[in-house]
Amino acid sequence: MCLAVPARITKIEGDLAKVDFGSYVNQEVNVALVEAKEGDYVLVHAGYAIQVLDKKEAEETLQLWNELLKMEELNT
């Protein structure tokens, strides 16, 4: 039930947006709960975008853990 899938907004009209889930899957979702613009990635849950995804934060998480693990690996 709390499943949410990332999708890219291709067009916004009022509270509704067309999103691209990849693999040519396009759907209309409600974007009333988020401040999103065309091109943003959002998390879609049951037909609603519930949050905008932050690509920079995603990259930082990966980078942080890659560095942390590298340090740990060097320590052994």
């Binding site: 039930m1 709390c2 409600n30 709960l33 849950h45 049951a46 037909g47 609603y48 519930i50």
Partner: peptide, 12 residues
């Protein structure tokens, strides 16, 4: 039904 993820959709 649903947790906090779903409740705002109902509210709206």
């Amino acid at each position: 039904i649903g947790f906090e993820t779903t409740a705002p959709l109902t509210a709206n």
